[in-house]
């Protein structure tokens, strides 16, 4: 069975959204990409998604430092969702923060798979994709 991957990019910098989308398309054009400049909108979108069918995974690439709802506030809301809905998503923190406290704080959230430091690279995205394949 082939595995279908979707990506949700949450970053208030549209340049970063463009970068991630462009790189993902380059790696595999069958990957679905949704980008959000506001974490609140991403959350509303995620909330409305049906639970993923088997063989379908959605990766959320989440920035931490954002105005209004930041990455931590997003995680807090996300954790209130029903468990099976949460399980449809794999969250990767992608941030320019090297602050060790940010890292410790986000690693406490079970839905967070990894904390990765920017820049976004092909290697980074390939790593996320192969991680998801292994888990499936």
């Amino acid at each position: 069975m082939t595995m279908h991957l979707d990506f949700i990019i949450v970053d208030n910098n549209s340049l970063n959204c463009f970068i991630a989308e462009r790189m993902l398309q380059n790696i595999d054009s069958s990957i679905g990409v949704h980008t959000f400049l506001h974490a609140q909108e991403a959350y509303e979108y995620i909330k409305k998604q049906p639970v993923n069918p088997e063989g379908h995974k959605t990766v959320v690439m989440l920035d931490i430092h954002m105005p209004l709802m930041d990455g931590f506030a997003f995680l807090q809301e996300f954790q209130k969702l029903p468990e099976e809905q949460q399980n449809s998503f794999a969250i990767y923190i992608i941030t320019s923060s090297t602050d060790i406290n940010d890292k410790l704080r986000s690693n406490k959230v079970p839905a967070v798979k990894r904390f990765m430091s920017k820049p976004i690279t092909f290697n980074m995205l390939n790593e996320i994709i192969s991680n998801m394949m292994v888990e499936a």
Binding site: N13, N16, I19, M23, H65, D99, K118, I120, F122
Partner: peptide, 24 residues
């Protein structure tokens, strides 16, 4: 300091990613 660091680094790191896209 936290905000300035972030404000400076984020665009720098974007440039690095863009350079990588162009390389491909």
């Amino acid at each position: 300091a936290y905000n300035v660091t972030h404000g400076l680094r984020d665009p720098i790191l974007s440039v690095l990613s863009l350079v990588e896209i162009a390389q491909h």
